[in-house]
């Protein structure tokens, strides 16, 4: 399927002092596509996605979102653009001065004019979908890591953004909850035509949810393609990575029920009409 490009990364180089973390990364992510980024620890995956929402400035290269160079935006323009982004952080990043409920309600209070009643409804619905509604009145310090991760996901999803970045959404979760999170990522794409970038070490989830997989090694994209293509890619590092994860190329199937390209295109068009009208 050919979809319009949503996010384009061109020749992205990032240096901290004299350490080069990203050596010229090129990536194109289509609208309503799920790109999974895999790669070893310290490969620069988090650094890469932090550039997508302008949490880092490129040393060289550009990030275009909807054709807009995010590094060139002013504070105010950037704040506006960010309303359409969401991010699930690797270390949860919950505000520990607030309850779980207030954390999820926070973006709604900041960015919308919804009434407190509507905010409560929406936030509680999201917490329920992730199975953490019973923890609504607790603070982040009082809940487990797995619960904190789910609250972080709820907070990112509650705004129903167009671009969602998940930094290791299933790490630290039990297998059952991990699959629930996979379903949610797929559902966000299916229901709202969300473009997703997912960093993961969980190969089951990678192969389940990906439209495309990109493998990052030491700051370079060494392979990218559909899950089926990645499985047979002719690169010893990639093959080693997949074999070590225990995914068996011979018996690989995607378990998450996926929409066809036509169905998805129709939904995206519908969402755009809603947004315009």
């Amino acid at each position: 399927m050919t979809v319009e490009a949503h996010v384009v990364v061109e020749g992205l180089v990032k240096r901290y002092g004299d350490r080069t973390i990203l050596h010229g990364v090129d990536l194109t992510i289509g609208r309503a596509e799920t790109l999974v980024v895999i790669g070893g620890s310290g490969a620069g995956k988090s650094t890469l996605v932090r550039h997508l929402i302008a949490l880092e400035r490129p040393t060289a290269g550009r990030i275009l979102i909807d054709g807009l160079d995010v590094a060139a935006l002013s504070d105010v323009e950037l704040a506006k653009a960010r309303r359409r982004f969401g991010m699930v952080f690797q270390k949860y990043a919950l505000f520990d001065s607030m309850t779980v409920f207030d954390n999820v309600a926070f973006p709604l209070r900041e960015q919308t004019k919804l009434s407190e009643k509507e905010i409560r409804e929406r936030a509680m619905t999201k917490l329920k979908e992730l199975g953490v509604d019973h923890a609504a009145t607790l603070t982040p310090a009082q809940i487990s890591g797995g619960m904190a991760k789910r609250v972080g996901i709820a907070r990112a999803l509650v705004m129903e953004p167009e671009l969602l970045i998940y930094d290791e959404p299933t790490s630290g979760l039990d297998p059952v909850t991990s699959r629930t999170v996979d379903q949610l990522i797929e559902e966000m794409r299916a229901r709202f035509g969300v473009t997703s970038v997912v960093i993961t070490h969980d190969m089951v989830s990678a192969f389940d949810i990906a439209d495309r997989i990109a493998m990052l090694i030491k700051g370079r994209v060494v392979a990218q393609g559909t899950p089926a293509e990645i499985l047979v890619v002719d690169n010893p590092d990639v093959q080693n990575f997949i074999r070590s994860s225990g995914v068996d190329p011979a018996r690989f199937t995607q378990r998450v029920g996926r929409l066809s390209a036509e169905e998805l295109a129709a939904r995206v068009a519908e969402r755009k009409r809603d947004a315009a009208g």
């Binding site: 969401g86 952080f89 270390k91 926070f106 900041e110 960015q111």
Partner: peptide
């Protein structure tokens, strides 16, 4: 400092709060 190291400051920024 804790908010910085646990990415809470980044989270604020992502939610368009300066």
């Amino acid at each position: 400092g804790n908010m910085r190291s646990s990415e809470q400051i980044d989270a604020l920024e992502t939610m368009a709060v300066n």
